[in-house]
Structures are given as structure tokens and as C-alpha cells.
Amino acid sequence: MIAQVVPVLLAFGANLGDRGETIRAAQRELADVDGVTDFVASPLHETVALTLDGPDPAAPKYINGVATLRTTLAPHALLDAMQRIETAHGRVRDTRWGDRTLDIDLILFGGRVISDDRLTVPHPRAHERDFVLSPWLALDPDAVLMGHGRVRELLDRIGDTTTPLADAADRGHAPTRPGGEPA
């Protein structure tokens, strides 16, 4: 039986520890998961922490990015791999929208709609998050968020409060594979 290859969009965030290195390490680990190919990471952006009460400029700032990949894994198998990597990087799930060493969200899984007790795809708040839309737009200027429209128009509507980073892996803001190699 031949497995179906599905395009995927993931979002990454961290506001504790060595944020950028943690995200890039997690991206390298995901790119090496059996059943994952064609992994391309966006430039990283810095943002104010978003809490249940709204933006919190006093909290440690987040670094965020997105990545595209192709996979033969089922959605929940990919989610399991993502959560194993989060845990390996010290992710603790005790406060909703709290500080974290690593957060990986499954934004899109092909054209599928998934809604169960573990997973909702497309991600229900991606269209409201400049820290997802801005790096995605840098990766793909023609991106479309299923059910919401063109990413450029969504970002224009909500505004962009992110600051692109220019670390070694993101020099020139060109899309990269994990580890900083040009895409």
C-alpha cells in the first residue's frame, strides 16, 4: 500500500531558555522524523507574549516561526512526534497560554478538517495570530489559510506587531532548512 503524501504547515514558538536555538533544534528533529520530507523553515520573528488576558509586555518575549513539510504520517502520529519533541525540550503543560520552552502547533494538514479531543485543524486561531501569519508570509507570499483566505490580507487586517530576527540562521530572511541551509 502506498501512503498518501500530505503538505503540512506547523507553527513554532518559545519564550523561555535559548528560544531560537530550541526552535531550530526542534525543527531539525522534526525534519528527521520517518515519514517527513521537504522540511522548509521560515525566518524567525520576535513578539510580545500573548496570554489569556491579552498581550503582556512584561512577560518574556516569544520567538516564532513556521515550517512547511510533506508527510506520509497520519495527523495524530505527526502530533505525537511533535509532542515528544516538545517534551524533550522541557515543555510543561500546566498553564494555558503560559510561558514555555517550546510550542509546536499543527496549523494545516493538507486540505483536511480535523476536530477531536486532541486535535483541531485548521488551527482555530491561526487567522488571528500575526506571529503565525507574518513568518508564513515571509516563507510563501501567496499563502492561503484554508477557510480564511489569503495570508497577506489576513495580516493586513489584524496588523503585524512581529519583529523579524536576523540571527545567523535567518540572515537575509530567506527560507531555510533546519540548521540554516538555504531552501
Rank of each mutant, 00 (worst) to 15 (best):
D117S: 13
R19I: 09
D117R: 10
A25V: 03
D18K: 09
T71G: 11
E153M: 08
G20M: 07
E86N: 14
H148Y: 08
R24C: 05
T95H: 14
G172A: 07
R28V: 08
F12N: 04
T176H: 15
P135M: 01
E181P: 07
L50H: 12
G172E: 02
G180M: 10
R100P: 11
A25S: 12
T37P: 01
L102N: 13
L69C: 15
T95W: 07
D94A: 11
D56M: 06
T51E: 10
E86I: 06
P7Y: 09
D56T: 01
A67N: 01
L79G: 06
I2R: 14
W97N: 11
D130V: 10
A88N: 12
P141A: 12
M82N: 00
A168W: 09
S42R: 11
D94W: 04
L30N: 08
D53G: 13
H89A: 12
E181M: 02
P178G: 11
W97E: 00
M1N: 03
L44F: 14
T22K: 03
A26Q: 08
A81H: 09
L52M: 03
V48P: 05
A67K: 05
V36C: 11
G179T: 02
G179L: 12
V92R: 12
A14I: 11
L139K: 10
D156Q: 03
V33R: 07
A169P: 02
R84F: 00
A41T: 07
A14H: 08
R100D: 05
A169V: 15
V144C: 10
V8F: 09
R150D: 01
P164M: 02
T95I: 15
G90I: 12
R28Q: 14
H76S: 10
H76E: 07
D53F: 02
S134D: 10
H45N: 05
L102M: 07
M146D: 10
L44I: 04
D160C: 08
P60I: 11
E29A: 15
A25D: 13
P182R: 09
L9H: 04
G90W: 05
R84N: 13
W136P: 11
H127M: 06
T72W: 09
E128L: 15
A41V: 10
T71N: 05
D99C: 09
F39K: 05
D156C: 00
I104V: 15
I23P: 03
I158D: 02
D156P: 00
V8A: 11
R93K: 12
Q83A: 08
T95F: 06
L119C: 06
D103C: 08
E181W: 01
A166M: 03
A58N: 11
T163V: 15
A3Q: 13
V48W: 06
D140N: 15
G110A: 04
I114M: 01
A31N: 07
